[in-house]
Amino acid sequence: MAPKSGDAIFASVDRVNAELFTLTYGAMVRQLLTDLEEVDEVNKQLDQMGYNIGVRLVDEFLAKSNVSRCVDFKETAEVIAKVGFKMFLGVTASVTNWDTEGTTCSLILEDNPLVDFVELPDTCQGLYYCNILSGIVRGALEMVSMKTEVTWLRDMLRGDDVFELQVKLLKQVPEEYPYKDDE
């Protein structure tokens, strides 16, 4: 079966009101801030929650998009940006800032429904409000045997013009059985 485009999948899945989604996420972050008190702890918790979502979500992504194995990390990044983000978040990202080895790149989000009504107060300046997204990407990639490090380089809530998510490939486990004659 041919791989589907992000738009095609987005059109076929069930959706909820965007504000319900945005407000629910906001309420969750607020509750975490109340419960954990430390901004750093909240960042960590959001990342962990995202990771737990990512390891499950990736199967749905693969089942519904008909995407098959990517040839390299470059293709993987493109698929995440164009199909993955569109399917689950309704927006597409662009991929830039490749390093020379092709192991580090940036996903640029110009539009992000998570932050529609959000203004960070002075007390939460260290908060990565969308840290759940980085966790999701990390968790999803880990399930397709890529260990990555995902960090926010730019954040619109901190005054930048876009969201920039840096994805760094640390380790890739070979997919197939390493064929050796002498064993």
């Binding site: 990736v58 098959s68 399930m143 397709v144 486990v173 070979p174 997919e175 197939e176 059985y177 390493p178």
Partner: peptide, 13 residues
């Protein structure tokens, strides 16, 4: 398509 590498060193895939 998803998977984990096996914890056994005899099955490194």
């Amino acid at each position: 398509l998803t998977g984990n590498s096996s914890p056994l060193s005899t099955m490194p895939w």
